[in-house]
C-alpha cells in the first residue's frame, strides 16, 4: 500500500455541501469521498492505494482533474484497489457530480 498526498490549485467550487461518497473499494475499483476543505483555492487529495510506484501517474490524473474542474475548497480522500486511470477519472467525475448535487 502507498499513501499519497496532493494539493492542487483549482478554481473555487461555489457551495460547500454535505460529504459525498462514490465507488467501492473492490478489485480494479476505488472509493472517493468528497468533503469541504479549508482553502477555497485549493483541492486537497489524499490517496491510499494498493499499487505501489504509481505516484506520478496519480499526480497526472488528479492534476488534470483539478485543472479542468472547479474543485477549489474541497478535500478528497481516496481508497484505491488498483483502479486504472480511466476508472479513476470516471469516478472523480461521478463523485464531484454527487457532491454538487448535494449542494442544491
Amino acid at each position: 500500500m502507498e499513501k499519497l498526498e496532493f494539493k492542487f490549485p483549482s478554481q473555487a467550487l461555489l457551495a460547500a455541501a454535505p460529504p459525498a461518497l462514490c465507488g467501492v473499494v473492490g478489485s480494479g475499483n476505488l472509493e472517493i469521498l468528497v468533503r469541504s476543505g479549508v482553502d477555497r483555492q485549493i483541492c486537497e487529495i489524499s490517496v491510499n492505494t494498493s499499487a505501489r510506484g504509481f505516484g506520478e501517474t496519480w499526480r497526472a490524473v488528479l492534476a488534470t482533474f483539478a485543472a479542468s474542474q472547479a474543485v477549489g475548497g474541497t478535500s478528497i480522500a481516496i481508497n484505491d484497489m488498483g483502479a486504472t486511470p480511466a476508472v479513476v477519472s470516471l469516478r472523480l467525475a461521478q463523485a464531484l457530480a454527487d457532491y454538487r448535487g448535494g449542494a442544491q
Binding site: G28, A51, F54, T57, G82, T84, P85, A86
Partner: peptide, 8 residues
C-alpha cells in the same frame, strides 16, 4: 483499447 490493462 483501454489505455491501461489490468495491473496498470
Amino acid at each position: 483499447v483501454e489505455t491501461f490493462r489490468e495491473h496498470m
